[in-house]
Design a protein around this nucleic acid. Sequence first.
DNA 1: CTCATTATGGACTGATCGATTCATAACACC
DNA 2: GGTGTTATGAATCGATCAGTCCATAATGAG
Lengths: 194, 194
Amino acid sequence: MARPREFDLDAALERAMQVFWAKGYESTSLDDLCAATGLGRSSLYGAFGDKHGLYLDALARYEEGSAARLNEALTRPVPVREAIAGFIARLIDDIVAGPGRRGCFIGNCAAELARDDREAAARVRRSLERIETAFRDALGRAKARGEIVRTADVGALARFFTAGIQGLRLVGKANPDRAALDDIAGVMLRALDR
Amino acid sequence: MARPREFDLDAALERAMQVFWAKGYESTSLDDLCAATGLGRSSLYGAFGDKHGLYLDALARYEEGSAARLNEALTRPVPVREAIAGFIARLIDDIVAGPGRRGCFIGNCAAELARDDREAAARVRRSLERIETAFRDALGRAKARGEIVRTADVGALARFFTAGIQGLRLVGKANPDRAALDDIAGVMLRALDR
DNA sequence: CTCATTATGGACTGATCGATTCATAACACC
DNA sequence: GGTGTTATGAATCGATCAGTCCATAATGAG
């Protein structure tokens, strides 16, 4: 009935996400986005609305992958301590070996524009809640299995790990030093030994 | 010998710092800075060089006050656990009661422009090291006093609290909920009970 | 009082921003 | 093959950006 789209929408979103992740919202221009995706302005606007809409879509895409990795790590059939340790170890690998100081897209978004961008702020809040829930569920199951003491407050621990991961990514962005990050991870994990 | 400056340089820097803190670097325009300080462009450029220089000065000013508060809290003649708990409690008060979602200026800087701004990145790294050192010194003194077990790794604990505070401020920026932040603080402090 | 020096405010610069417009192209349907 | 509909690319929009320039004002030194 009409001319079909000539590009892969998903691939374009992935490229745009990488640019926003690396440069942030304000510092990314539409020319940057066109260059990264290989698309013209018309195609971008036709597919994603405007710059802000594309940013939100990119944020959603990041969160999707991020949450999937976390859930996969936390539902492995191993003790929860090992599962969390494995997740954090891979996180540190990413920070140290990754293409330099991008941090966490969600955290970057929170720091950059959650101030007066209610929609973005709501997305960030939801993302953090999702992470928190994943931890709480995993810790709840572990508690039922007797892996952690019955007096443990899994809700507080879940919030702690959520914040801890953000802190880890932030200081890792400023100084991607494995020894320092391993130190932090080690102390974090000992919150489970009680 | 020449016309004297008509404004208070320190007060102007304080105002500029507040704006950069609240809005970030890119989103703050020179018109914003002129409006906040009450100065004209010529005065700003004459006193601080350019926008980037002013931003770095503002960052330094923030770090000064921030480090002073931390050191004051950590050198109080009380058990280190109490000192740290007091500092974090006041931090949470700031986050919850403060004028909305500014986060930590240093953390905001790290998230926003530490990527390809080497000078800002170096400042952030130095700031975090300063925080880490303050914790390490306080924990070292506490260890010598026998407040924490002799097997404790004060270096790792210092790094942990440094990252933890950043995580606390970040999630607090996204969701300034006292109960959640208190949960996180509670788990963090139990790292000292060993 | 005069002059050299610096501060100030406002006009102005070229560049870049996000967004729109429009002519053209490519399809599905009849 | 004609027609309606959407995609595409280039040109372009007004707004805003950081930064500069210049005429004027305000001081201290001689």
